[in-house]
């Protein structure tokens, strides 16, 4: 499969995973890969402070979308602003201000579970329907929030029987459960606990939300070093001298990397056995995540996507 085919499978891709697994980096890399392949892409950040702007090398994102690179734009989506927009579009501008000022928004958010998530996802649906981009990549909330974020529409149907909020929830469910409109890409580290949690999340999302799962991204797998035996053996073969303490350091660092790679691959294999989804593996990145690292990861994703089975 090539990246264009990958992008055209659904307009919305939600990137989800627990905190610390590199969800934001994957969001940036996937969007970059898609934009490079010729798609117009919009990145949506739904939780403040996710580090997207650092990864993309731009000032903090705002509710107004902004161009990042060729064909690549980014914006945030917050419940408060989505609600204001929602009410203003219905001619309730003055009410909306009072809602926020009086704290009634808190009341409403408390009264209706998932109200905030619905406002955000409702706006995503509007963007999707409006055809604002070929691909909309969403950096979903972290941790266990991913499931509740996507479950909120179902929960809301139980609580609210009539009215515009219910309609909104129904529209969101229609979006989430249509594999031609929306996919979820789950991200994990190749470590025991994150893999276990990803498996649980994957089944919960499929069974309880009915959302289509795209390939799983297994992040931070160290690349092979391609060496074998002690450093001094290579030095001898090349007729070069290496001080003994340096040789020891070279060997220790090589052994560390090789051990981490073996463990990571074992976890990725275990994941493959327990969860029958294709995997995209990304290398461990030594540097802090910035535009250059994101670019490299975009290349790795492109290679990985090419290796995926083609559309049927």
């Amino acid at each position: 499969m090539n990246v264009e085919q990958f992008c055209s499978a659904s307009r919305v891709v939600i990137v989800a995973g627990k905190g610390g697994v590199g969800k934001t980096t994957v969001t940036a890399a996937l969007a970059t890969a898609a934009a490079r392949a010729g798609a117009s892409v919009l990145i949506v950040e739904v939780e403040g402070k996710s580090g997207l702007s650092t990864a993309l090398g731009c000032p903090p994102l705002t509710y107004e979308e902004r161009p990042i690179a060729d064909r690549l734009r980014a914006r945030t989506l917050t419940p408060d602003e989505a609600l204001l927009e929602y009410l203003e579009e219905r001619g309730l501008r003055r009410i909306s201000r009072r809602l926020v000022r009086s704290g009634a928004l808190d009341v409403v958010a408390t009264a209706v579970p998932g109200m905030q998530d619905i406002l955000v996802l409702g706006k995503v649906k509007q963007l999707e329907r409006g055809g604002t981009a070929d691909l909309i990549v969403i950096d979903a909330p972290a941790a266990g929030h991913a499931v509740s974020f996507l479950m909120s529409a179902r929960g809301l149907l139980d609580a609210v029987r009539v009215g515009p909020v219910r309609t909104q929830a129904e529209d969101v469910i229609a979006l989430l459960t249509d594999p031609e409109r929306c996919r979820v890409v789950l991200v994990t580290l190749a470590e025991e606990t994150p893999v276990n949690e990803l498996i649980e999340t994957a089944f919960a999302l499929e069974d309880r939300v009915g959302v289509k799962l795209g390939p799983v991204v297994v992040n931070a797998v160290p690349d092979p070093l391609g060496v074998d035996g002690p450093a001094l053996a290579d030095a001898a073969d090349a007729g070069l001298a290496v001080p003994l303490p340096v040789a020891a350091a070279l060997d220790a660092a090589a052994a560390f990397r090789s051990e981490r790679r073996t463990l990571a691959l074992a976890q990725a294999d275990r994941l493959a056995q327990r969860l029958p989804l294709p995997q995209l593996r990304l290398p461990f990145v030594f540097g802090e995540i910035g535009p250059r690292q994101v670019g490299e990861l975009a290349d790795a994703l492109t290679t990985g996507i090419h290796a995926l089975p083609g559309p049927t």
């Binding site: 450093a231 030095a235 090349a238 070279l250 090589a254 990397r257 030594f286």
Partner: peptide, 26 residues
Amino acid sequence: ELREHGDPAAARLGARYENLADYAEL
């Protein structure tokens, strides 16, 4: 330097140095 050496064993040694440099920088 080792990569430019031309010898495969030197290149492997270079990869080891690069790896150690990566961890040292980290």
